[in-house]
Design a protein around this nucleic acid. Structure first.
Lengths: 199, 199
DNA sequence: GTCTATAAGATGATAGAC
DNA sequence: GTCTATCATCTTATAGAC
């Protein structure tokens, strides 16, 4: 059996998932390692046992964890409708729901850290770039499967992800679902304008 | 005569513009107040003389400064073409150019700080939200002037800003103009689909 | 693998002379 | 208004017992 509850995870995994959650909220610099260790139910000794590279090494693992977690959410959302335009619209509603439920804190798991990392922490930056690429691939595959050209699929996937990311940031700062829901409608319209007639 | 060179500014203004630039790069927590003071050519005494509220009070002023600076860039970009779809496309090229020239550091002046501020620094968060609203209004007015309905103008302005913001983040992390240029093409297409026929 | 205590340095903020 | 010196605290990281 594969469990997903935090309590059943080993210390290493608890450190990673806790770091991912805290970095999702305030980014890297806003996340003191002591608070992280405490919330994970671990100790400083355990942290440096599993991550000799310290905070940055843990951050790389946390970004990769957030990458896969958000990929799962993307897969779920994209599978809600066969039509890609409808699927992206439904996805924005999923994101808006999760965001408001978390008191506007659970936005994109990497954006805050990504911006801090540019030109300062190359390994963290690379992990963030890999996450974006991974997510884009998921959207791209959905569009390809719906008959869009390779170029259109690649480009649209990029804009879909970037628009969702920007709208999520605005939703967090403004504490409102509107940016995400409006983005959903516009992305649906944009995608629909590329979808080949299906009949 | 109104000068725009840093050297001619008073200490207070140098602190604000320096804080804006450093926060644009790494956000709030990544910007130590001592480095800030040093780069501004000021001293700790001056900082707390002008900003008794310390780092957070300076951050609020810096966000407002970045707000107005980016608004000026937006006005410039939007004025390049009468047609709003073309104008937004040209704007993305402006942003991509400035971003690469700055070694991918000069992205949106508020995003990094905005994400750190959510639920932690209400006054900073409010300043960031005000900046977004200010920028949206500029795009909205452009669209209104081109004959779009009030609702379409408001919603499109929101998505234009959020897509630009998300694409700029991706461009920074991936060190590539592509996300911005692709966003420009898609936003142009989206806007064009709303513009009433002009003949 | 885990734990506590501590080191070594950075950080935001203040005091008080000028 | 400006400056330097200093404070109290926090931060990452390590040491060494268990």
């Amino acid at each position: 059996m594969t469990t997903t509850t935090t309590a059943a995870l080993g210390t290493r995994d608890r450190l990673i998932s806790t770091a991912s959650r805290l970095m999702q909220h305030g980014g890297y610099e806003s996340t003191p390692i002591k608070q992280l260790v405490k919330e994970a139910g671990a100790t400083m000794g355990s942290l440096y046992h599993f991550f000799p590279g310290g905070k940055q090494e843990l951050a790389v693992a946390a970004i990769a964890y957030g990458d896969e977690e958000f990929a799962e959410l993307l897969r779920t959302g994209l599978a809600l409708h066969a039509d890609p335009a409808e699927a992206v619209g439904a996805l924005t509603e999923l994101l808006a729901e999760a965001l408001e439920e978390s008191m506007w804190r659970d936005g994109c798991p990497v954006t805050a850290t990504a911006l801090e990392s540019v030109g300062r922490m190359p390994e963290v930056q690379a992990a963030c770039a890999a996450a974006y690429a991974n997510w884009e691939r998921l959207v791209e595959e959905k569009l390809l499967a719906c008959g869009l050209s390779e170029e259109d699929s690649r480009d649209l996937a990029m804009t879909v992800l970037n628009t969702l990311g920007g709208a999520e940031t605005a939703a967090q700062v403004g504490q409102s679902r509107t940016p995400l829901l409006v983005a959903g409608r516009h992305l649906s319209r944009l995608i629909a304008s590329y979808v080949p007639a299906s009949d």
